[in-house]
Amino acid sequence: MSNLNVGNVDRTLRILLGLVLIGLAAAGTIGAWGYVGILPLITGIAARCPLYTLLGIRTTSR
């Protein structure tokens, strides 16, 4: 598990953002683009972000 690079605050924000975007898309408020919220939701749940890996960013202390 040493490859985790998303900290707890970052994870929480990603999960909330993902759920909000998906919810708005499902309600028809923002259209199909809201399903892009799947990306922050998955990276938040997995605590791993491929873009952070490429850029060498870590928001976790582990």
Results as ranks from 00 to 15, higher is better:
residue 30 I to G: 02
residue 4 L to Y: 12
residue 12 T to G: 12
residue 4 L to I: 09
residue 24 L to P: 13
residue 26 A to I: 11
residue 30 I to T: 01
residue 24 L to F: 13
residue 53 T to Q: 07
residue 36 V to Q: 03
residue 1 M to S: 00
residue 58 R to A: 08
residue 61 S to P: 03
residue 9 V to W: 08
residue 33 W to K: 13
residue 57 I to D: 04
residue 54 L to G: 01
residue 18 G to L: 02
residue 32 A to M: 14
residue 16 L to Y: 08
residue 58 R to D: 12
residue 62 R to W: 12
residue 37 G to C: 04
residue 36 V to L: 11
residue 19 L to V: 11
residue 16 L to R: 01
residue 4 L to Q: 08
residue 3 N to H: 09
residue 2 S to K: 13
residue 49 C to Q: 02
residue 2 S to R: 14
residue 15 I to H: 13
residue 21 L to C: 12
residue 30 I to E: 02
residue 16 L to A: 06
residue 13 L to E: 01
residue 10 D to W: 06
residue 48 R to N: 10
residue 38 I to R: 07
residue 36 V to M: 15
residue 45 I to K: 07
residue 42 I to D: 00
residue 4 L to H: 10
residue 19 L to R: 01
residue 60 T to W: 12
residue 31 G to Q: 10
residue 11 R to L: 05
residue 46 A to N: 14
residue 35 Y to P: 07
residue 19 L to S: 09
residue 17 L to M: 06
residue 7 G to F: 08
residue 57 I to F: 15
residue 42 I to Y: 02
residue 32 A to V: 13
residue 43 T to I: 09
residue 8 N to Y: 13
residue 32 A to Y: 14
residue 27 A to T: 14
residue 4 L to D: 02
residue 56 G to Q: 09
residue 13 L to T: 00
residue 62 R to H: 10
residue 39 L to V: 13
residue 13 L to N: 04
residue 25 A to D: 07
residue 50 P to F: 11
residue 54 L to M: 03
residue 21 L to A: 13
residue 41 L to N: 06
residue 26 A to S: 13
residue 14 R to W: 05
residue 51 L to P: 00
residue 48 R to H: 11
residue 31 G to R: 03
residue 59 T to G: 11
residue 41 L to C: 07
residue 24 L to R: 12
residue 52 Y to W: 04
residue 54 L to H: 03
residue 14 R to G: 05
residue 47 A to K: 05
residue 61 S to Q: 07
residue 29 T to Q: 15
residue 21 L to N: 06
residue 14 R to C: 01
residue 29 T to N: 14
residue 11 R to S: 11
residue 59 T to D: 06
residue 19 L to C: 07
residue 33 W to H: 08
residue 11 R to T: 04
residue 23 G to M: 05
residue 8 N to P: 08
residue 22 I to T: 03
residue 46 A to H: 02
residue 60 T to Y: 13
residue 57 I to P: 00
residue 27 A to S: 15
residue 43 T to E: 15
residue 49 C to W: 05
residue 37 G to Q: 05
residue 47 A to N: 14
residue 36 V to T: 10
residue 38 I to Y: 15
residue 33 W to E: 11
residue 13 L to G: 00
residue 41 L to P: 03
residue 53 T to E: 15
residue 15 I to V: 11
residue 19 L to N: 08
residue 12 T to L: 11
residue 14 R to D: 09
residue 58 R to T: 11
residue 21 L to W: 05
residue 60 T to L: 03
residue 30 I to F: 08
residue 38 I to T: 07
residue 37 G to W: 05
residue 44 G to V: 01
residue 37 G to T: 01
residue 10 D to G: 04
residue 25 A to C: 08
residue 31 G to W: 10
residue 21 L to M: 15
residue 28 G to I: 03
residue 42 I to H: 10
residue 29 T to D: 10
residue 38 I to G: 03
residue 57 I to R: 06
residue 20 V to H: 04
residue 55 L to E: 11
residue 4 L to P: 02
residue 53 T to K: 09
residue 59 T to Q: 06
residue 51 L to E: 05
residue 16 L to T: 13
residue 36 V to K: 09
